[in-house]
Computed example of a mutant assay.
Amino acid sequence: MGGAVGYMQFLLEETQKRGLPVRFIGVELLSTPRDYPFIPIQKKSDSWQKFLVKLFLRAPFLKFVRGEIVHVFRIAYAFPILLFHRQVKVVCVSAEPLAAAAHRYPHWLFKIIDYLFWHVERFVLKRLKALCTTPDVLSRYFFSRHPALMKTVLVHPSTAVGIDLQQFTVLERIPIREKYNFTPDQKIMLFVGRLAPVKRVDFLLKVFKQLHEKEQVSHFIIVGDGEERERLQRITEKEGIPAVHFWGEVSKTKLPEVYNLADVLVLASETEGNPTVVREALACGLPVVSTAVGDVPEILDNPYCGAVVPSRDVSDFQEAIAKVLALPREKVNSVCRKKAMDFSREALFEELVRLYNS
């Protein structure tokens, strides 16, 4: 149910693969073959707030059997289900706390929303079967807001999507570079994700400018689209930052090539859950330099997999990237790929099945 298309596609595809009974309540996922019952809440993807309102209107009329497991992506979506259907067992994913959205609202309005949401969280947490979240969000958000209640909640410390290790793998680099008109000796920095304020791609442009001026990095490829794209392009032009390539959305089939042509993936987000791009990059032998968000510090526990930058300083980030780029590429490929073996679709889905059966 709910948003996070990639997460829901992962669940649906793996349940179908195993012949498990499943139905989907939410928005049509066009890229997933539908061999399961589908109950539409709205016709196309929209804001989570609008989806929640429509779910509230529909929830009293949904039919569930006693003990049925309902896997939802946001605590807000669990609220109407548990309000009208006490007989179900809800597994809820909460990868991004409400506080991450504070900048989108006036201060006074956010205080009201936060107060109401505290009560929603409390209602849901009292009735959940399990909460899927990251250690970072768990300690920083849930334990600070609901310390007593969290002692009784079953927690699964992951919101990760499994990676197809056959699709995301190490490829021959030189032919790919030739295909995209890059030379073998150039150093390429890569960002993959939504172009939204929380991703801080404007910060990464400053980092790249410094690296480019020092001739440590030749190109910066930005894959993804979003509300920030035009502003970021204006910054690039105004600041005279050369060799920045806005590639927009790239299909899942072409993404492994993009990871393989780069030298480092960069992530400077204010908040994350279990970023899929980090796992995909490692599977392709690509190291990652990131802020300390979500479960990234636990993943990047080997210097050959990349680095976590605790500060938000441009020079610190630039220095971390330079150190990663200086490492021997063959060793980097090998260590990153080995680390990615922990994130296979099969392994992560089996963890969820054990959670369902607990």
Rank of each mutant, 00 (worst) to 15 (best):
F208T: 06
A76Q: 09
L116T: 04
V124S: 12
S144W: 02
W48M: 11
E230I: 12
D114L: 10
K323E: 12
Q216V: 11
V27F: 11
C132D: 07
V293F: 07
S47C: 02
A262E: 09
F168D: 09
E350I: 13
Q87D: 14
K44V: 13
P97N: 04
I163N: 07
Y77K: 00
Q42M: 15
R86A: 14
F220R: 01
T253V: 14
V288I: 04
F349T: 03
G226S: 04
H85E: 08
L204P: 02
I241S: 10
V124P: 10
N260C: 09
A78F: 05
F117L: 00
S94G: 04
K44E: 15
P21S: 08
R66V: 14
V293M: 06
L352R: 15
A243I: 00
D136R: 15
V192S: 05
A326I: 02
L131C: 10
G193S: 04
Q216E: 12
F168A: 13
V192K: 00
E215T: 15
A243F: 03
E270W: 12
L20D: 03
K214H: 04
K238W: 12
H103K: 08
K44G: 11
C132W: 00
F117D: 04
E28P: 12
G285P: 14
A59L: 07
E319R: 13
L282V: 13
A101V: 02
I75Y: 03
L57K: 14
D136V: 09
R173E: 12
E257R: 02
P60D: 10
K43H: 14
A148M: 02
A196R: 04
K43E: 15
E298Q: 14
Y180P: 00
N181C: 06
S144Y: 02
T134L: 11
M8L: 02
D263A: 05
L204S: 10
V353L: 15
T32F: 05
V335H: 00
Q318W: 05
V207T: 04
L325V: 11
M1Y: 01
V278P: 08
P60G: 07
S311V: 01
K17W: 00
S47H: 07
L109Y: 01
L190G: 06
K199E: 14
P197Q: 00
P60I: 06
E351G: 15
V223N: 02
